[in-house]
């Protein structure tokens, strides 16, 4: 495409950052303009420079880091516990047609239930510490991983299984060398979604009642109608989610080297 109309350098040929930065700046400008002139009330929409002030204070004083740390720990724990449970139960049900037939309606029902309503129950069961947030994240992550693994195991190539059996694999070796790698590859293919869900679980959990974490900061600020801090918290969460997603991308690339990707040739 770009080669065909080389001499007609269009807007599409510019590096995307060149376009994206002005867009962000003008949006902030618009926000600033509308709130300064009181077209939008400052009380509800905040002021961009005060929001940046809050961010500046959080990061220079280091006040934000313990909260970020707590949110990160909750996210990681929710992901790990949810993924392991989803993997084990997904494998078990996929390899046990009877069990799977019995469990099917319950799993569908549990997945259909809006998980947020569980948050108050988890708060009662696990207290206001990190575990109630982890539990909420787990309920979100579990189903994504579970369904992926279940489907993945059902679709393992029969030739691959037959080949392993001819080569002398017993049931345990079959599980270890065929089913498990196949299942984990499905876990990793849903990595972005499930890590995102773990994060959502952590933040929503914090927001609904906690003593620490970024969600807690937002909750606190909202309580005293400090809209600028709420916005600052939202920005931190967004940036954090992006960083998390990048990290997942790196991990994914390392773990799935055996996956065919198209266009792997190197440019000269």
């Amino acid at each position: 495409m770009s080669r065909a109309n080389k001499n007609r350098r269009g807007i599409a040929d510019l590096p995307s950052a060149v376009l994206q930065i002005p867009i962000v700046c003008s949006l902030i400008g618009l926000w600033y303009g509308l709130t300064e002139t009181d077209i939008l009330p400052k009380f509800f929409f905040g002021e961009p420079f005060k929001v940046f002030g809050v961010l500046w204070h959080w990061f220079t004083s280091g006040e934000i880091f313990p909260h970020l740390g707590v949110t990160l720990v909750e996210t990681v724990l929710a992901f790990v516990v949810g993924a392991v449970l989803g993997l084990v139960i997904g494998l078990w049900l996929a390899l046990n047609p009877t069990a799977s037939r019995l469990a099917d309606p319950y799993i569908k029902a549990a997945n259909a239930m809006p998980r947020v309503v569980l948050a108050p129950i988890f708060a009662v069961w696990f207290g206001l510490g990190i575990w109630s947030k982890v539990a909420l994240g787990v309920t979100l992550v579990f189903f994504i991983v579970f369904f992926n693994v279940y489907q993945g195991i059902r679709e393992v190539s029969p030739v691959l299984l037959a080949n392993a059996r001819v080569l002398g694999a017993n049931a345990r070796q079959l599980l270890r060398t065929v089913y498990l790698p196949s299942a984990t590859s499905w876990v990793f293919s849903s990595l972005h979604t499930s890590v995102g869900m773990a994060f959502v679980g952590a933040v929503v959990g914090e927001y609904l009642g906690s003593a620490r974490g970024v969600g807690y900061l937002i909750l606190q600020a909202e309580g005293v109608f400090d809209i600028n801090t709420v916005f600052a918290g939202m920005l931190v969460l967004t940036a954090f989610a992006l960083v998390l997603d990048q990290a997942v991308g790196v991990v994914e690339k390392r773990l799935l080297v055996w996956r065919p990707t198209h266009g792997e040739t190197e440019k000269l």
């Binding site: 190539s157 030739v159 691959l160 080949n163 060398t177 065929v178």
Partner: peptide, 11 residues
């Protein structure tokens, strides 16, 4: 047994 279809483990 050498199968007609692909039988190597992709991972």
């Amino acid at each position: 047994y050498m199968f007609q279809a692909e039988s190597l483990m992709p991972w």
